[in-house]
């Protein structure tokens, strides 16, 4: 499956929590491959293991077994400098725009902190200019928000700051774990557009992690359906929605309330 247009893949990735009888296989022998510049969604209900899988890809959690290959290099066990280099290329946006902020840090600090990844490559002026650019990229006026504390911003605004952070780091792969689930539906499009913008302008590969099949279908080209730690189906979004193959996918699609199809009949 390996080819030049692949950015990351996993080989038999497994995560077991606990040990002995109480052991739970959160992620069970998962092998996936993500292409460069694609928008892909990892869809699963709570407890499916999708967040665990995402955290392993982010190298925030150690896998129990298996491998993560990023751009041809095995990154499963890298540490220190190599890990920092990895985080320059792979970044995240999380679900809860409130919890993503240290309540004691103003916006500019959240962004300036990201420069740790670049050691001391930039001067103070360069850093500031880049911070301003990234805030502008998410439609903020830098002088208006830079000194604001998180509690002075709305949920949608905070999530935009997190996207600005991604703009600043310009990762090759951005993993967005339920980035809009805590944001009002009518503000969702703004966030989604900004994320998809990153792909169009910077060529960032984006992986959404979500429980919301409607959202996943709307934003992505491909879907990975996860259930009980395993990827049960993967493929083109259109194809999965119109002709699901696996019984779980069929069930999932049938259980989501839709607008034009009957739902409660059975």
């Amino acid at each position: 499956m390996s080819s030049n247009d692949e950015i990351i893949k996993t080989e038999n990735l497994t995560k077991v929590f606990g040990s002995g009888k109480k052991a739970i296989k959160a992620v069970d022998d998962v092998s996936i491959s993500i292409k460069k510049k694609e928008v892909i969604s990892l869809v699963g209900q709570s407890g499916s293991g999708k967040t665990t899988l995402a955290r392993m890809l982010l190298r925030l959690l150690k896998p129990t077994a298996g491998k993560i290959i990023f751009e041809g290099q095995d990154v499963t066990n890298i540490e220190g400098k190599e890990k920092k280099a990895y985080w320059r290329k792979v970044q995240a946006i999380f679900q809860d725009p409130y919890a993503s902020f240290n309540i004691f840090s103003p916006v500019k600090k959240v962004l300036l902190d990201a420069f740790k990844l670049f050691d001391n490559k930039f001067t103070k002026e360069e850093k500031w200019r880049m911070v301003c650019e990234s805030l502008e990229a998410v439609n903020f006026r830098p002088d208006e928000v830079a000194d604001k504390f998180p509690f002075e911003l709305s949920g949608g605004q905070r999530q935009r700051v997190m996207i600005a952070r991604a703009h600043l780091i310009k990762p090759e792969l951005l993993i967005a774990d339920e980035p809009t689930s805590m944001i009002d539906a009518n503000l969702r499009s703004g966030i989604l557009e900004l994320l998809l913008d990153l792909r169009d302008t910077e060529g960032t590969t984006i992986m959404f992690v979500t429980h919301d099949l409607g959202l996943a279908y709307y934003v992505s080209e491909r879907l990975l359906i996860m259930h009980e730690g395993k990827i049960v189906e993967e493929g083109e979004a259109d194809k999965i929605i119109s002709e699901p193959d696996h019984p779980y996918t069929k069930q999932l699609i049938a259980d989501v309330p839709k607008l034009s199809e009957e739902w409660l009949l059975e």
Binding site: L58, L60, K83, K84, W87, Q91, A92, F94, Q95, D96, A99, S100, F101, N102, V110, D113, A114, K116, L117, M162, R165
Partner: peptide, 13 residues
């Protein structure tokens, strides 16, 4: 387990 801690880790702190 808070997300801002994850963000700090992803900053290489």
């Amino acid at each position: 387990g808070r997300e801002h801690v994850d963000i700090a880790r992803l900053n290489g702190a």
